[in-house]
Design a protein around this nucleic acid. Structure first.
Length: 719
DNA sequence: AAGGCAAATGTTTTT
DNA sequence: CATTTGCCTT
């Protein structure tokens, strides 16, 4: 076997990782160090050199995107398709297992997946049934709590009722929620993983079967595994399977979602015969950028420790822009982007990253004004949109009229006179006779136990769905989707909806049809619709953005993980915003913010701009934050501060809002001068900044504190 | 049952 | 500030 193709172009650390023959392997892969490459090449190594059959390999990722990418790259490298190899997300694999072993874990055969939106609805209903005050007990919080327990592997029965009011209440909701899920035959995302774990725990024979089948497990983004995923892996690994874990403790940014960095920190304790390889050579960024990243992350404790380096040159300095406010910040970024494209660069190569979504508005406005095309990532995902979920609910009903979740969702959409009252009656009847909403509706109509109007409306619905379902199993997927969207009246409903919104909804429904057209079933023997619905439930649907236009990318730091851009802006580098004020009190959470900063910095390949605003309006109130501590951690020899007209070396400290100043010679004012403002009253001039029309002045007012004003428009008068 | 208004509320979100 | 939510009216 010629192994040169597999080892070709790997550096020594990468090669060490690819070829390691110790039982377990931990690859600590720094940002931009060729992590996916190592994973893919190691799989190729196992198949071609170690003669492991593809079906004995299990590769686990977190996102569908990376699963797809991995599969593609292996196919490419080996020049063949590896049928039989399992590559998927934790959730996808869990789903696959549960589909095969539903009986063993107490599920119904056609169990449905509950997404977070459906989950919240169900939690709400449960809480209403328990007569809990929604003010006092926000359903979102209960949902959060339940998921947190599940992520830790705790069922309601495992949790001790400490008598504490809060926990006791949450526990009651959890119990009821569990019961409801069982009754409805639905499972949420966390439950997929938990059941898959219980499958191993309670069915050794099943576990053994898979332990015999697989020889290698490879896990990507290992730092993001939660307690259940980790336990699942350890059980599967048993004493024979070999595990390759690839991850970066410095990029663990999902702790708030249950991810445990500890898993990677304690890997070689829990798995014996472990070899650890560090990938520290970076192929992405300039040396200056890496220096900044290293300096920021070094301040964290509890690291396994890594230092990125590169063979490429220093590159450009990092730039820091101190904006007067968020609008100034946005305008500055737009200016730089304009220049970038004027220099002949692609907008696609530039990204603006921020801590929270709320920051995107102002940036958008500035880009719009500057006529710079942009694309926003994040926000609502395709399959989570209202109109899409409604269409899918009709599809689910066509497949199975007893799908209560779907029934409830669309029984009155479009409005057909089946209001809250009628629905309540149906629910009660269903519960009383222990049957589904559909069955009890049929009974209620037949038994004439509803007011005339409601009865007719409900009978109409029953007939409609019945007709839609009729013979639909023999139709093509796309025809079924058309039925769901048109016959249900959904499309007309949204066509009538006025404004942008209605238009967008109609377009989205058309998009759904297109998705059906393109859908490829895994198993062509089986009916296609259920396969489509399952896939949709587990795939958020890559955010539908028109890829064709060259556009600047806007996204949160979290969504930027794994991506890279020649030009990056990190906007809003301010205390309280980043690190976010919610994370300030706990050291652990602060460290996660720091890792987020590290992730942000390491996205940049050539040029990195850091910007912050001295004044920022958040939710209507103005706040003055100092520059982020993460900026202050960047060594001054790789960072230069940008001023409006000229560039000066970065001052050594930013303490107490000290901003270097130019003297406003031609302004008629002097430092320390007493001035008056029409609104703020009297104050003292502290600093001048900039020149010409954008010159700013810092004034300490007696009554309202320090304000930064644009000199031209402030209309200050000498006292 | 739909539409209008006031009130509440606002970190990050792979599945 | 701006959007979503829930309550209330017709």
């Amino acid at each position: 076997m010629d192994v040169t193709a597999i080892l070709d172009k790997l550096n020594s650390a990468q090669e060490e990782a690819v070829t390691s023959d110790r039982r377990h392997l931990l690859v600590l892969a720094g940002a931009g160090s060729g992590k996916t490459r190592v994973l893919v090449h190691r799989i190729a190594w196992q198949i071609q050199v170690e003669d492991v059959p593809p079906h004995a390999i299990l590769a686990v990722t977190f996102t569908n995107k990376s699963a797809r990418e991995m599969r593609e790259r292996i196919d490419q490298l080996l020049g063949m398709s590896l049928r039989g190899m399992w590559v998927g997300t934790f959730h996808g694999l869990a789903h696959r297992l549960l589909k095969a072993h539903w009986r063993d874990v107490g599920l119904v055969e056609n169990f449905q997946i509950l997404d977070s939106d459906d989950q919240l609805r169900l939690v709400k209903r449960v809480m209403r049934a328990l007569e809990l005050d929604e003010q006092r007990w926000p359903p979102r919080q209960a949902q959060w709590w339940i998921n947190a327990q599940k992520d830790e592997g705790l069922r309601a029965a495992h949790i001790q009722d400490s008598g504490d009011g809060h926990i006791a209440t949450m526990l009651r909701v959890y119990r009821e929620y569990e019961a409801s899920c069982d009754r409805l035959g639905v499972i949420d995302f966390a439950e997929l993983l938990l059941r898959a774990l219980e499958l191993w725990r309670h069915h050794p024979e099943v576990l053994e079967h898979y332990q015999e089948r697989f020889q290698h497990i490879l896990v990507d983004e290992f730092q993001d595994t939660n307690a259940v995923q980790y336990a699942w892996l350890r059980l599967l690994a048993g004493t024979r399977l070999r595990v390759t874990a690839v991850g970066d403790d410095d990029q663990s940014i999902y702790g708030w979602r249950g991810a445990k960095v500890e898993n990677i920190l304690s890997y070689d304790r829990d798995f014996d015969e472990t070899h650890t390889v560090r990938l520290e050579q970076n192929y992405r960024s300039t040396s200056n950028i890496l220096q900044a990243a290293n300096a920021v992350i070094e301040k964290n404790s509890d690291r396994l420790g890594k230092k990125l380096w590169t063979e490429s040159g220093d590159g450009e300095m990092l730039a820091l822009y101190a904006a007067f406010n968020e609008h100034d910040e946005a305008r500055y970024i737009a200016d730089r982007l304009q220049q970038w494209t004027d220099d002949g660069q692609r907008r696609d190569d530039a990204a603006i990253l921020y801590r929270s979504n709320a920051q995107s508005r102002v940036l958008e406005a500035a880009l719009l004004q500057a006529e710079i095309p942009y694309r926003i990532y994040g926000g609502q995902r395709f399959y989570e949109r209202l109109e899409i979920k409604n269409a899918l609910a009709y599809l689910r009903l066509m497949l199975n009229v007893d799908d209560d979740t779907a029934f409830e969702r669309v029984v009155n959409i479009p409005a057909r006179g089946i209001g809250e009252r009628t629905q309540d009656t149906i629910r009660q009847a269903a519960r009383a006779s222990n049957t589904t909403l559909w069955a009890s509706s049929v009974q209620l109509v037949a038994a004439n136990r509803l007011p005339g109007r409601a009865k007719n409306a409900l009978a109409g619905f029953i007939q409609l769905v019945g007709e839609m379902a009729q013979g639909s199993a023999s139709l093509k997927l796309i025809e079924q989707a058309e039925t769901a969207i048109e016959r249900s009246g959904l499309i007309d409903l949204y066509r009538r909806e006025k404004g942008e919104r209605g238009l967008a909804r109609v377009e989205n429904l058309e998009e759904l049809i297109a998705a059906c057209r393109n859908f490829q079933a895994d198993d062509s023997e089986q009916p296609i619709l259920p396969q489509f619905l399952d896939q949709v439930a587990l795939d958020a649907g890559d955010r539908q953005a028109d890829e064709d236009q060259d556009a600047v990318q806007l996204m949160t730091l979290h969504s930027a993980k794994g991506l890279e851009f020649p030009l990056v802006f990190l906007a809003g580098m301010e205390e309280n915003l980043f690190p976010h004020k919610m994370s300030l009190d706990e050291p652990g959470r602060l460290e996660e913010e720091r890792r987020l900063a590290y992730v942000g910095i390491t996205r940049a390949m050539q040029k990195l701009y850091l910007t912050f605003a001295e004044s920022r309006s958040i939710y209507g109130t103005e706040s003055f934050n100092s520059v982020s501590r993460f900026v202050r951690d960047i060594p001054s020899d790789v960072l230069e501060e940008v001023r409006l007209q000229n560039t000066i070396a970065r001052p050594t400290s930013y303490s107490a809002g000290a901003i270097s100043s130019d003297i406003g010679e031609d302004t008629g004012f002097a430092l320390g001068q007493l001035v008056a403002h029409q609104v703020y009253g009297e104050g003292v001039i502290l600093h001048f900044e900039g020149h010409g029309p954008r010159a700013r002045v810092h004034v300490q007012f007696a009554e309202v504190g320090t304000k930064i004003l644009i000199l031209d428009s402030a209309r200050l008068s000498v006292v």
